[in-house]
Design a protein around this nucleic acid. Structure first.
Lengths: 205, 205
DNA sequence: TCCTCCAGGTCCTCTAGACAACCTAGAAGA
DNA sequence: TCTTCTAGGTTGTCTAGAGGACCTGGAGGA
């Protein structure tokens, strides 16, 4: 065991410490850990990279490193960004922006987002998702108005999930509702018959 | 776009090349790529790390880097089952059946399932999903009455997705709605604060 | 009081090397 | 012929920095 790479041994040591730590605790700065273990900072970073990809810690530039609430289910189905999911199949992801605007919120949307303004507004984004130029899904996204910067992004090539993550919305856990219904209104966008039986999954992430 | 980090731009360039490459092809050595892009070898390695974690390449010490066999895109993009998802990310999946019954359908459910009977009924299944005994999601499933055989299955150990697949419901395409809201009613089952901010994705598969 | 600016701390990116571990192919020897 | 070993190429690990981007809190001014 003494011949494992340094960064692996440091990772193990930190993992043991994290078991005893509480969510939100501050992890010592990289420079401090480097000095403590007597290694270069890049070596500490290699260990922290593994812990971060396991969802055990969260690193925020300019602030520090923190113990996470709980492991982040990164590769779990819909939690993965569409692009990552498609690429993992070995297909080429593509998105077409159908609409992106700030508009008045419906009563249902205002309730779900807990918007209390007199005339609540939402950022509404519609995308058609392709894999190898085959349309796979239509995505209607709806966010509070303070996220209107999302509209400035290049959503056809960029990752919506990544943009959300950078803004503090972390898809960590959730409930989901699964039903069976027919394609209906989206059938033309997906190029399938309107009565095609589909699964419908309402997922709270 | 020109202000992305070097290793990200290199990653994108390599990703584009990989799309045109064939499985088993040799990827140029790190030192060669470093010279080609005019960067340090560590920078090339950062790009390759991302490609490797995406499963696009395989690195073998002493031999070289190779284009990976693309994962077989199973049955036209079938969504991974919960169990596969959890196992893939190295955890032990478990489910607890909260309720499984045939009951009267709500008006909303009857409309979604296009049930036309005078007193429409649905098969209703509620599961709590665990990964390593940590509750991750609550799943409310709702199906037309002719699928009542689902209730005879051992849903705590078996796969609901697989059972549906065998009955002809293929989650292949769909639309989804993505919003941000709070945990709310499911917070006790998930053991998180009710005001925990979560992403909500309504997905039509 | 309120706002702006700045300093210090943190993580992020990148460099230019060095040596180790490992694999392959070909040379040298039995 | 067969085996062994060595040379060279590759990825893996690690160093000791440097500057940039970003956040926070406090000093100073309006």
């Amino acid at each position: 065991m003494g011949k494992a790479p340094l960064y692996v041994r440091i990772e193990r040591e930190l993992r043991a410490r994290l078991d005893r730590a509480r969510p939100g605790d501050v992890v010592p700065a990289e420079s401090a850990l480097a000095e403590e273990f007597g290694v270069a900072r890049m070596t500490v970073r290699a260990a922290l990279n593994a812990l971060e990809s396991d969802g055990l810690i969260e690193r925020i530039q300019g602030r520090g490193t923190f113990v996470r609430q709980r492991p982040e289910p990164r590769a779990a189905g819909t939690l993965m960004s569409f692009q990552d999911q498609v690429r993992r199949w070995g297909r080429i992801p593509r998105s077409r922006l159908v609409a992106g605007e700030v508009r008045a919120a419906s009563a249902e949307e205002a309730a779900a987002l807990q918007l209390t303004a007199a005339a609540p507004r939402v950022v509404s984004i519609s995308l058609v998702r392709f894999a190898d130029d085959v349309p796979l899904a239509v995505e209607y996204a709806c966010f509070p108005p303070h996220l209107d910067a999302l509209l400035d992004l290049d959503l056809e090539t960029g990752s919506l999930h990544r943009a959300l993550h950078e803004r503090g919305l972390r898809p960590t856990l959730g409930s989901s509702r699964l039903t069976a219904q027919r394609a209906g209104a989206d059938s033309d966008l997906l190029r399938v018959p309107a009565d095609e039986p589909l699964l419908v999954e309402t997922r709270r992430l």
